[in-house]
Design a protein around this nucleic acid. Structure first.
Lengths: 199, 199
DNA sequence: CCTACCGATCGGTAGG
DNA sequence: CCTACCGATCGGTAGG
């Protein structure tokens, strides 16, 4: 007789995401994880190599999602304002789709070993750089106000990456409302009040 | 002969702030803390009751600072826009003044026991409510655009409370620049483009 | 996937 | 502030 659960490994990953999010990586024991899965602690190691590999899988899986979504947008024919709005929307969609995993991605990545850590930081820097590039081309085209792109993009990510802290999936706030609020708080703030045409 | 260090307890607190920030509360051992202080692990307990009390002291000391700064502002005669700007500036000043402690305040509070945790959450909710009140009175007076105050204030805190993640005290960015960037990204975004007078 | 177990490390105490 | 130490818990392995 086969197991009722189609994929035990997938179940372990999902439960790890939830525990790492709610308790934190360091405060989550493999024994606690085993209990939520319903097997003995030692049995976990038939499916996963180590606790840290669980963390790495979460972080790099989410990094992949972010990167691929942005790649698709960058291939579209859009002006900087449209492109930035699309990038923001895509980023938020991924957060809402994977609330546990993205929270771990944002807060627990630092517990990876240094090799993974360096790879992770590079991916994240590249991703942020692409957002900065959109902002900078918009400033050049005078669609956006002059601002320090580094600070401005950090503030944008701060808003988007805080969603998991206050968003209630069972509340009445929809994805569309969140995207709108962030576009309003951020984009309207950096948009010129009277858009100019090629100076 | 007295100790060279004026206050060993203060030194322990400061070192705990730094370790809790950089390694995380759960990943910081009392042995590691003792080593940075230069005493044996057991000797820590002559100065502090427990590891958790160290965390509580950090969290409630910072909560006090935030609350008192805001109280002073609320007693001034200011319109909602000036009041919100002053509250933002005061909040940022405290973050920059206590980078280690505020980072612990933002990320490690969840490891307090449930009695402290409840007290802490209440203080934080009261503080956020006061920001919401300012925003709401500004919306009533039509100084600010209509927005969902709850989401909007969460986004504001997200920006302010992310500073520790990207601010480099040795860089050329000054407190004034950070305050300006956040006011620009946030306040300009919610300000009416053409301010109305009592409809 | 289980039983049985290992060495390491943890927060904290006793007693001086 | 130190030496000596405790019980608990940790991530992980051996062997089936």
């Amino acid at each position: 007789m086969k197991s009722i659960l189609p994929d035990r490994k997938e179940q372990i990953n999902k439960n790890a995401q939830n525990l790492f999010r709610t308790k934190g990586y360091k405060a989550t024991s493999m024994r606690a994880l085993a209990k939520t899965v319903g097997i003995e602690p030692a049995s976990l190691y038939s499916h996963v190599a180590s606790k840290e590999v669980l963390l790495q899988n979460i972080c790099f899986q989410i990094a992949d999602e972010f990167i691929h979504a942005l790649k698709n947008i960058s291939e579209e024919k859009l002006n900087p304002k449209e492109k930035l709005a699309a990038a923001i929307q895509a980023h938020i969609r991924i957060i809402l789709k994977h609330l546990d995993a993205t929270t771990v991605f944002f807060h627990e990545w630092k517990y990876m070993n240094s090799a993974s850590l360096n790879r992770f930081k590079n991916l994240r820097n590249d991703y942020e750089q692409k957002f900065r590039n959109i902002l900078e081309s918009g400033i050049e085209e005078q669609i956006f106000q002059k601002t320090d792109p580094h600070t401005s993009i950090k503030l944008l990510f701060a808003m988007m990456n805080s969603i998991h802290e206050w968003y209630n999936p069972k509340g009445k706030l929809k994805q569309k409302d969140i995207v709108e609020s962030i576009l309003k708080s951020y984009l309207n703030g950096i948009l010129e009040k009277q858009p100019k045409q090629n100076q």
